[in-house]
Amino acid sequence: MASSCEDDDPMIIDRPDYDPTPYSLDYPSYLPIMEIPEDNPMTEEGVSLGRMLFYDPILSADSTLSCAGCHKMEYSFTDERQFSVGIDGSVGTRQAMHIVNIGWMPDLFWDGRSQGLEAQALEPVINPIEMMDTWPNVVNKLSNHDDYPDLFWAAFGEDQITKEQVVKAIAQFERTMISGDSRYDLIVERNEGFFTDAELEGFEIFNTERGDCFHCHGGILFTDNLFHNNGLDSVFPDIGLEEVTGDPLDRGLFKTPGLRNIELTAPYMHDGRFETLEEVIDHYSEGLVYSETIDPLMKQIAQGGIQLTDQEKASLLAFLKTLTDTSFINNPAFKNPFED
């Protein structure tokens, strides 16, 4: 009877042996060690599947919106709009975060409510103002698709597709989205060039307490992966981390975004209030606003900011643009596989 049942199950009969190919995640040695979750080892099949899912609107209720609909490659995988728009026209309240080197980010979303890429990917699919689907429906659609059942089998070797497999595949793809080939990397990490005078001045402003950018945006990832009140408001229409922790000490704290490709990711801040990098620099120079949870790293809060000269502002901007990695936004491995 047992063999008869198995013979009746096309899921088993028609599939090759489960034999995934381990994915070799190569990145420059000056980037940190990336911790890969033990329960989601990277495979060629998993990364490839995750790339398809990232670009496939099948994850949304009416099959019109994919992850890439708000995380667009040309903008370093963020949305050029202040707030992204859901499938029914609903508008969000926070700027889409750009996806660069997020394999090194323990906490996701501006308020850090998800720990790990797998947990993060669970949310947009069922968010009532984003993709507006349900996981049972998504799993059903994928299970009845012409191609996905075989692709999931190749990636995970399980008979049934699950939401856990979906987010694991997306996370595997996202861990490959690594930027380490900007002019900054060439000059500072590989000694293969020189800054212009303006870029060098900007580098020094950034990396000293003159500008004091580095305490939050320091290191090779250009983020401390922590949460800060950076002086945007005196009262907070969006309370940020407090919404997750319930702790008033976390009021108005938001995750430090990485600055790689920052030239491409306008608008800026959690609510996209600044349209240009010039406005961002003006904020830190003379626009800081005091509130009780202001971060102690905002040293010049009493003066409204670090009071940069026009030349210093231009130099800082020039330095920030050295973080642009055009190879990242043109990497064929990150492009829409349905347009190949």
């Binding site: 580098f203 580095f214 320091g218 992966n225």
Partner: peptide
Amino acid sequence: ENTLTNINMEWPIP
């Protein structure tokens, strides 16, 4: 070691 914690403690003054 090149960990997130140690990176956050770097002293990048030129």
